[in-house]
Design a protein around this nucleic acid. Structure first.
Lengths: 209, 209
DNA sequence: TGCCGCACTAAGCGCCCGCTCACCTTCGGC
DNA sequence: GCCGAAGGTGAGCGGGCGCTTAGTGCGGCA
C-alpha cells in the first residue's frame, strides 16, 4: 500500500479516471493553468490552447469554466482523503499511524504541488453549492487526523493540550506545503515528509527517537 | 513597545501612514475587496465604490490596480517584519523570544486576517519587480526566526534536527493562520497565539512548561 | 471679487473575457 | 453507399474589464 503510491513520476496519472481522452487533457491543462496563474487569471482560451484544442472544444466536455475547477477540487480532495484514510487504518500504534499519515500527506502536497495548490487554495472561487460539497470532504480529512490524535491521547501515548487546535495546526502545516514547496528547492518530497512527521510527533508530545 | 501593538481593535489603524485621506480610504477598500474575492476577481469599480468614490478617482492616487496591491504588500510585510524584529530583540532566553515571536506573529495574522490574507496569498499577482522586492522582505522575516532558533541550538536550549527546515515550518504554520482563521470561530487571536507558541516550542524540542 | 489649481465625476474607449452557434469531418451500422 | 451521432472548428456575440479624457465644483489667495 505505502509503496508505489503516487510518489513517483509526473502528476498526470492521478486523472486516469477521467474518461474521454479529450476531457482528461483539458482537465490537466486546467490544473496547470490554475496552479500557475490562479483561477480568475486563467482564460478558457489558455486552457484549450494548452490542451491543443480550440476555445470552443472546452464547452463540449464541460458546461462552464467553474465546472472544471469543481471537478479538479472533488477528485483532489477525494485523493487526499484516501491517503489519510489509508494511513489511519494501518496497523500499529497511534504514533506510527500519525507519522505515516503526515509523511504521505505531505509527500502528496509536495510531489503533486501543482494539483494540491489548486485543490487547497482555489476553493473560494467555487460557487456556494460546490464549495459546500468540498468543505464536507475537508471535514472528513480533519476527522481522520483527529481520530488518530484522540487514539494516541486515550492510549497515553500523546500529550496534547488542545486536540481540536492541534489537529487544525497539523493539517494547516501539511497543506501549506503546497504553497511554498519548490521542485527546484533543496528538498525532495520524501525529505519534507520525513521532517514533517518528526515535527508533528513533537507537537503531540512524543520525542523524536 | 510590546504593549499596545496592533492587537486591539479594527484593522484600519495600521494604515495611518498613508497620507491623503482619499488614498487611505481607497487602500483600505482594496484590502477588503482583495481579501474577500482575491486580486484578479476584484474590479477597480468595486474598490472605488467601497471607498464611496467614482471609478476614475482611483487613478488620481494610484497609477494602476497593481500599484494598490504593491503598496498593501509592502506595508504589510514591513509590519510583519517589525513584529518579528521586536520579538527577536527582546531580552530573555531563546525560548522566551521564540514564544514571544510566534504568539505576536500569530496574533497579527489572526486579528488582522483581512490584511494578512492579502499580504501572504496575493503575492503571485504582482509583477516580477514588485514581487522581488516583497520576497526580499520575506527573507528578512525568515532570517529573524532562524536567528532565534540558531541561538537556542547554540545555547543548548533547543533540540533541532534541521534548522532551515524547522524555521520554514514554523513560519509556514504561522502564516497559514491567515487562511483558516475565522473571527466567528471558537478561538480568539490571543488563544491561537498561545496555542501556537506552545506547539512551536515543542517543535524545537522544549517541553510545554 | 476673480481666477487658478486640484480633487473628483460622467462618459466612454478599446480590449478581451466566457460562452455560443453554424458548420465541418470522421466513423460505425445497415 | 448513405446516414446520423459524436466531437471538433472559426467566427463572433454581449458584456464587463482596466484605464482615459473632457469637463465640473470648490477652496484659497491676490
Amino acid at each position: 500500500m505505502s509503496t508505489a503510491e503516487e510518489t513517483a513520476g509526473g502528476e498526470a496519472q492521478a486523472w486516469g479516471e477521467v474518461t474521454p481522452d479529450a476531457a482528461r487533457r483539458l482537465l490537466i491543462a486546467a490544473v496547470e493553468a490554475f496552479a500557475e496563474r490562479g483561477y480568475h487569471a486563467t482564460t478558457t482560451r489558455d486552457i484549450a490552447g494548452r490542451a491543443g484544442m480550440s476555445p470552443a472544444a472546452l464547452y463540449i466536455h464541460y458546461k462552464t469554466k467553474e465546472e472544471l475547477l469543481h471537478r479538479i477540487s472533488r477528485i483532489g480532495h477525494e485523493k487526499a482523503l484516501e491517503i489519510l484514510r489509508t494511513a489511519a487504518r494501518q496497523e500499529g500504534t497511534a504514533r506510527e499511524r500519525l507519522a505515516g499519515a503526515v509523511s504521505s500527506f505531505v509527500r502528496w502536497h509536495a510531489g503533486g504541488r501543482t494539483t494540491a495548490r489548486v485543490v487547497q487554495y482555489e476553493l473560494d472561487s467555487l460557487g456556494p453549492d460546490a464549495r459546500d460539497e468540498i468543505l464536507a470532504l475537508r471535514r472528513q480529512c480533519d476527522a481522520e487526523v483527529r481520530a488518530i490524535i484522540e487514539d494516541g491521547v486515550a492510549a497515553g501515548e500523546f500529550d496534547v493540550l488542545d486536540v481540536k487546535g492541534t489537529t487544525l495546526a497539523v493539517l494547516s502545516l501539511c497543506i501549506d506545503v503546497a504553497r511554498w514547496f519548490n521542485v527546484n528547492g533543496p528538498w525532495t518530497p520524501d525529505e519534507v515528509g520525513a521532517l514533517y512527521a518528526d515535527l508533528v510527533l513533537r507537537m503531540v508530545g512524543v520525542g523524536a527517537k
